[in-house]
Protein backbone atom coordinates (compact mmCIF):
# COMPACT_ATOMS: atom_id res chain seq x y z
CA UNK A 1 0.00 0.00 0.00
CA UNK A 2 1.33 3.38 -0.93
CA UNK A 3 -0.46 6.43 0.50
CA UNK A 4 0.36 10.02 -0.36
CA UNK A 5 -0.72 12.75 2.05
CA UNK A 6 -0.68 16.39 0.99
CA UNK A 7 -0.37 18.80 3.88
CA UNK A 8 -0.07 22.52 4.41
CA UNK A 9 1.70 24.58 7.02
CA UNK A 10 -0.63 27.31 8.25
CA UNK A 11 -0.45 30.11 10.79
CA UNK A 12 -2.03 29.11 14.07
CA UNK A 13 -5.27 31.01 13.54
CA UNK A 14 -6.03 31.08 17.23
CA UNK A 15 -3.22 33.65 17.23
CA UNK A 16 -3.86 35.48 13.99
CA UNK A 17 -4.50 39.19 13.93
CA UNK A 18 -5.34 41.47 11.06
CA UNK A 19 -3.50 44.73 10.58
CA UNK A 20 -6.38 47.22 10.83
CA UNK A 21 -4.69 49.66 8.44
CA UNK A 22 -3.67 47.37 5.60
CA UNK A 23 -6.25 44.61 6.10
CA UNK A 24 -3.60 41.93 5.70
CA UNK A 25 -2.60 39.10 8.01
CA UNK A 26 0.07 39.88 10.57
CA UNK A 27 2.24 36.81 10.21
CA UNK A 28 5.13 37.99 12.36
CA UNK A 29 5.37 36.15 15.64
CA UNK A 30 2.47 33.84 14.77
CA UNK A 31 3.45 30.21 15.27
CA UNK A 32 3.10 27.94 12.24
CA UNK A 33 1.40 24.59 12.63
CA UNK A 34 0.38 21.68 10.45
CA UNK A 35 -3.14 22.40 9.23
CA UNK A 36 -5.26 20.59 11.85
CA UNK A 37 -7.24 18.49 9.34
CA UNK A 38 -4.04 17.47 7.59
CA UNK A 39 -2.46 15.94 10.66
CA UNK A 40 -5.54 13.70 10.91
CA UNK A 41 -5.03 12.81 7.25
CA UNK A 42 -1.48 11.72 8.05
CA UNK A 43 -2.71 9.72 11.00
CA UNK A 44 -5.37 8.05 8.79
CA UNK A 45 -2.70 7.05 6.29
CA UNK A 46 -0.42 5.68 8.99
CA UNK A 47 -3.27 3.74 10.60
CA UNK A 48 -4.28 2.31 7.24
CA UNK A 49 -0.71 1.16 6.72
CA UNK A 50 -0.72 -0.49 10.14
CA UNK A 51 -4.06 -2.13 9.43
CA UNK A 52 -2.77 -3.61 6.19
CA UNK A 53 0.41 -4.77 7.85
CA UNK A 54 2.79 -2.62 5.83
CA UNK A 55 3.25 -0.11 3.09
CA UNK A 56 4.58 3.38 2.66
CA UNK A 57 3.26 6.80 3.60
CA UNK A 58 4.67 9.72 1.63
CA UNK A 59 3.93 13.23 2.77
CA UNK A 60 4.19 16.22 0.45
CA UNK A 61 3.79 19.92 0.88
CA UNK A 62 4.31 23.01 -1.21
CA UNK A 63 5.62 25.96 0.74
CA UNK A 64 8.61 27.99 1.88
CA UNK A 65 11.70 26.27 3.36
CA UNK A 66 10.19 26.72 6.82
CA UNK A 67 7.42 24.28 5.85
CA UNK A 68 9.98 21.50 6.36
CA UNK A 69 9.08 21.75 10.08
CA UNK A 70 5.54 20.70 9.28
CA UNK A 71 6.83 17.71 7.29
CA UNK A 72 8.98 16.63 10.22
CA UNK A 73 5.94 16.64 12.46
CA UNK A 74 4.32 14.24 9.97
CA UNK A 75 7.41 12.02 10.07
CA UNK A 76 7.00 11.98 13.85
CA UNK A 77 3.42 10.81 13.36
CA UNK A 78 4.68 7.92 11.24
CA UNK A 79 5.23 9.09 7.66
CA UNK A 80 8.07 7.30 5.91
CA UNK A 81 9.06 9.85 3.32
CA UNK A 82 8.62 13.62 3.16
CA UNK A 83 8.94 15.89 0.15
CA UNK A 84 9.06 19.66 0.31
CA UNK A 85 8.12 21.32 -2.97
CA UNK A 86 9.77 24.67 -2.58
CA UNK A 87 10.92 27.28 -5.03
CA UNK A 88 10.42 31.01 -5.27
CA UNK A 89 8.78 30.31 -8.64
CA UNK A 90 5.88 28.63 -6.83
CA UNK A 91 5.19 31.76 -4.80
CA UNK A 92 1.79 33.45 -5.03
CA UNK A 93 0.00 30.30 -6.14
CA UNK A 94 -3.79 30.13 -5.89
CA UNK A 95 -5.73 26.87 -5.63
CA UNK A 96 -5.51 26.23 -9.39
CA UNK A 97 -1.72 26.51 -9.52
CA UNK A 98 -1.36 24.59 -6.25
CA UNK A 99 -3.50 21.72 -7.48
CA UNK A 100 -1.38 21.57 -10.65
CA UNK A 101 1.87 21.37 -8.67
CA UNK A 102 0.57 18.75 -6.25
CA UNK A 103 -1.02 16.64 -9.03
CA UNK A 104 2.16 16.77 -11.07
CA UNK A 105 4.20 15.80 -8.00
CA UNK A 106 1.91 12.88 -7.21
CA UNK A 107 2.20 11.67 -10.82
CA UNK A 108 5.99 11.66 -10.44
CA UNK A 109 5.77 9.80 -7.12
CA UNK A 110 3.33 7.35 -8.69
CA UNK A 111 5.83 6.62 -11.45
CA UNK A 112 8.37 5.55 -8.81
CA UNK A 113 5.93 3.55 -6.67
CA UNK A 114 2.26 3.28 -7.65
CA UNK A 115 -0.03 5.22 -5.36
CA UNK A 116 -3.18 3.53 -4.00
CA UNK A 117 -4.73 6.32 -1.98
CA UNK A 118 -4.26 10.06 -1.58
CA UNK A 119 -5.25 11.98 1.54
CA UNK A 120 -5.99 15.69 1.98
CA UNK A 121 -7.43 17.51 4.97
CA UNK A 122 -10.95 18.71 4.17
CA UNK A 123 -9.71 22.29 3.99
CA UNK A 124 -6.94 24.55 5.27
CA UNK A 125 -7.82 26.80 8.17
CA UNK A 126 -6.11 29.83 6.63
CA UNK A 127 -7.82 29.84 3.22
CA UNK A 128 -10.87 27.66 3.94
CA UNK A 129 -11.40 27.00 0.23
CA UNK A 130 -11.50 23.17 0.25
CA UNK A 131 -10.58 23.37 -3.44
CA UNK A 132 -7.11 21.91 -3.73
CA UNK A 133 -7.96 18.28 -2.88
CA UNK A 134 -10.85 18.10 -5.35
CA UNK A 135 -8.69 19.97 -7.90
CA UNK A 136 -5.97 17.36 -7.65
CA UNK A 137 -8.47 14.48 -8.00
CA UNK A 138 -9.85 16.12 -11.13
CA UNK A 139 -6.41 16.63 -12.63
CA UNK A 140 -5.43 13.03 -11.86
CA UNK A 141 -8.80 11.83 -13.11
CA UNK A 142 -9.42 9.56 -10.13
CA UNK A 143 -12.43 9.15 -7.80
CA UNK A 144 -12.85 11.84 -5.15
CA UNK A 145 -14.54 11.43 -1.77
CA UNK A 146 -14.76 14.62 0.28
CA UNK A 147 -15.46 14.88 4.03
CA UNK A 148 -14.40 11.27 4.63
CA UNK A 149 -14.83 10.08 8.21
CA UNK A 150 -13.97 6.37 8.00
CA UNK A 151 -12.43 3.76 5.73
CA UNK A 152 -14.57 0.70 6.26
CA UNK A 153 -12.91 -1.58 3.78
CA UNK A 154 -9.68 -1.33 1.86
CA UNK A 155 -8.95 -4.21 -0.49
CA UNK A 156 -5.69 -3.80 -2.38
CA UNK A 157 -6.05 -7.02 -4.34
CA UNK A 158 -9.58 -6.25 -5.53
CA UNK A 159 -8.63 -2.56 -6.00
CA UNK A 160 -11.66 -1.35 -4.09
CA UNK A 161 -12.49 0.51 -0.89
CA UNK A 162 -15.59 1.44 1.11
CA UNK A 163 -15.49 4.91 2.61
CA UNK A 164 -17.89 6.79 4.90
CA UNK A 165 -18.53 10.39 4.05
CA UNK A 166 -20.19 13.06 6.16
CA UNK A 167 -23.10 14.84 4.51
CA UNK A 168 -25.65 17.18 6.07
CA UNK A 169 -28.27 14.45 6.45
CA UNK A 170 -25.91 11.88 7.90
CA UNK A 171 -23.31 9.48 6.59
CA UNK A 172 -22.97 8.29 3.01
CA UNK A 173 -21.33 4.91 2.50
CA UNK A 174 -19.53 4.85 -0.83
CA UNK A 175 -17.73 2.12 -2.68
CA UNK A 176 -14.87 3.20 -4.89
CA UNK A 177 -12.13 1.82 -7.06
CA UNK A 178 -8.49 2.51 -6.29
CA UNK A 179 -6.62 4.77 -6.45
CA UNK A 180 -8.91 7.20 -4.71
CA UNK A 181 -8.47 10.69 -3.25
CA UNK A 182 -10.04 11.48 0.12
CA UNK A 183 -10.39 14.82 1.84
CA UNK A 184 -10.89 14.02 5.49
CA UNK A 185 -12.64 15.24 8.60
CA UNK A 186 -10.88 15.00 11.95
CA UNK A 187 -12.95 11.92 12.91
CA UNK A 188 -11.16 9.82 10.32
CA UNK A 189 -8.44 9.10 12.89
CA UNK A 190 -7.60 10.57 16.29
CA UNK A 191 -4.06 11.88 16.45
CA UNK A 192 -1.94 9.73 18.72
CA UNK A 193 0.91 10.88 20.91
CA UNK A 194 3.93 10.04 18.75
CA UNK A 195 6.34 7.54 20.31
CA UNK A 196 9.77 8.79 21.34
CA UNK A 197 11.67 6.70 18.75
CA UNK A 198 9.63 8.44 16.01
CA UNK A 199 10.58 11.85 17.41
CA UNK A 200 14.21 10.87 17.35
CA UNK A 201 13.88 9.52 13.79
CA UNK A 202 12.24 12.79 12.73
CA UNK A 203 14.93 14.89 14.42
CA UNK A 204 17.47 13.07 12.27
CA UNK A 205 15.37 13.08 9.08
CA UNK A 206 16.08 15.46 6.25
CA UNK A 207 13.07 15.99 3.92
CA UNK A 208 13.72 15.94 0.18
CA UNK A 209 13.35 19.26 -1.59
CA UNK A 210 11.84 19.42 -5.06
CA UNK A 211 12.24 22.64 -7.02
CA UNK A 212 10.40 23.91 -10.07
CA UNK A 213 12.90 22.19 -12.31
CA UNK A 214 14.30 19.23 -10.39
CA UNK A 215 13.82 16.29 -10.06
CA UNK A 216 10.73 16.89 -12.22
CA UNK A 217 10.00 19.81 -14.48
CA UNK A 218 6.89 21.86 -13.79
CA UNK A 219 5.25 23.89 -16.55
CA UNK A 220 6.33 27.47 -15.78
CA UNK A 221 3.04 28.77 -17.20
CA UNK A 222 1.01 26.85 -14.65
CA UNK A 223 2.86 27.63 -11.43
CA UNK A 224 3.14 30.56 -9.08
CA UNK A 225 1.54 33.90 -9.86
CA UNK A 226 1.57 33.15 -13.58
CA UNK A 227 -0.57 30.08 -13.14
CA UNK A 228 -2.94 31.78 -10.72
CA UNK A 229 -5.95 33.56 -12.25
CA UNK A 230 -7.50 34.33 -8.84
CA UNK A 231 -7.46 38.00 -7.90
CA UNK A 232 -8.13 39.12 -4.34
CA UNK A 233 -10.05 42.37 -4.64
CA UNK A 234 -9.94 43.48 -1.07
CA UNK A 235 -9.53 42.03 2.38
CA UNK A 236 -11.05 43.80 5.31
CA UNK A 237 -12.25 43.24 8.84
CA UNK A 238 -16.03 43.50 8.99
CA UNK A 239 -17.29 45.91 11.64
CA UNK A 240 -18.22 44.13 14.86
CA UNK A 241 -21.93 43.38 15.18
CA UNK A 242 -23.83 45.41 17.67
CA UNK A 243 -25.84 43.50 20.24
CA UNK A 244 -29.49 42.65 19.55
CA UNK A 245 -32.49 43.99 21.40
CA UNK A 246 -33.72 41.93 24.31
CA UNK A 247 -37.49 42.02 24.69
CA UNK A 248 -38.80 40.76 27.98
CA UNK A 249 -42.11 38.94 27.83
CA UNK A 250 -42.50 39.44 31.56
CA UNK A 251 -42.30 43.22 31.19
CA UNK A 252 -44.06 43.82 27.87
CA UNK A 253 -46.40 40.87 27.53
CA UNK A 254 -46.26 38.25 24.81
CA UNK A 255 -48.34 40.05 22.20
CA UNK A 256 -46.33 43.24 22.41
CA UNK A 257 -43.07 41.32 22.09
CA UNK A 258 -44.31 39.41 19.04
CA UNK A 259 -45.56 42.61 17.47
CA UNK A 260 -42.20 44.31 17.98
CA UNK A 261 -40.33 41.32 16.61
CA UNK A 262 -42.56 41.20 13.53
CA UNK A 263 -42.01 44.90 12.93
CA UNK A 264 -38.24 44.42 12.99
CA UNK A 265 -38.46 41.42 10.68
CA UNK A 266 -40.68 43.40 8.33
CA UNK A 267 -38.13 46.19 8.18
CA UNK A 268 -35.49 43.62 7.23
CA UNK A 269 -37.65 42.76 4.17
CA UNK A 270 -38.39 39.21 5.24
CA UNK A 271 -41.69 38.25 3.61
CA UNK A 272 -44.40 35.66 4.02
CA UNK A 273 -43.99 35.23 7.72
CA UNK A 274 -47.03 34.49 9.81
CA UNK A 275 -46.80 35.02 13.53
CA UNK A 276 -47.41 31.84 15.47
CA UNK A 277 -48.74 32.83 18.81
CA UNK A 278 -48.48 30.23 21.45
CA UNK A 279 -46.98 29.45 24.76
CA UNK A 280 -43.24 29.10 24.78
CA UNK A 281 -42.21 26.94 27.69
Amino acid sequence: MHAVVAIKQVPDTSNVRIDPETGTLIREGVPAIVNPYDIHAVEAAVQLKERLGGGQVTVITMGPPKAAEALLECVEQGADRAILISDRKFGGADTLATSYVLAHTIEAINAELPVDIIFFGKQAIDGDTAQVGPGVATRLNIPLITYAVAIEEFDLAARRAVVHRRVEQGIEVLETTLPVLLTVEKEIAPVRHAPLPRLIAAARYQPETWTATSPVLFDPQQIGLKGSPTVVGKAYTPPPRSGGDVLSVADLGLDAVVARAMAVIGQAHVRDLQPVTGVVS
Binding site: H193, P195, L196, P197, I200, A203
Partner: peptide, 28 residues
Protein backbone atom coordinates in the same frame (compact mmCIF):
# COMPACT_ATOMS: atom_id res chain seq x y z
CA UNK B 1 19.81 15.83 19.37
CA UNK B 2 17.00 18.12 20.55
CA UNK B 3 13.63 16.52 21.28
CA UNK B 4 10.86 18.95 22.16
CA UNK B 5 7.23 18.56 23.33
CA UNK B 6 8.33 15.70 25.53
CA UNK B 7 8.25 15.69 29.31
CA UNK B 8 10.61 13.57 31.35
CA UNK B 9 8.35 11.91 33.89
CA UNK B 10 10.85 9.98 36.00
CA UNK B 11 14.42 8.90 36.39
CA UNK B 12 15.30 5.29 35.64
CA UNK B 13 17.51 3.67 38.27
CA UNK B 14 19.23 0.33 38.47
CA UNK B 15 18.94 -2.07 41.39
CA UNK B 16 21.61 -0.14 43.29
CA UNK B 17 19.80 3.16 42.90
CA UNK B 18 22.13 4.58 40.26
CA UNK B 19 20.50 6.75 37.61
CA UNK B 20 20.68 5.02 34.24
CA UNK B 21 18.21 6.98 32.13
CA UNK B 22 14.84 8.69 32.01
CA UNK B 23 11.26 7.85 31.12
CA UNK B 24 9.09 10.34 29.22
CA UNK B 25 5.40 10.93 28.58
CA UNK B 26 5.80 9.43 25.08
CA UNK B 27 4.97 5.83 24.12
CA UNK B 28 8.20 3.76 24.09
Amino acid sequence: LLITRTTVTRLLKDERGRVIGVDTDRPD
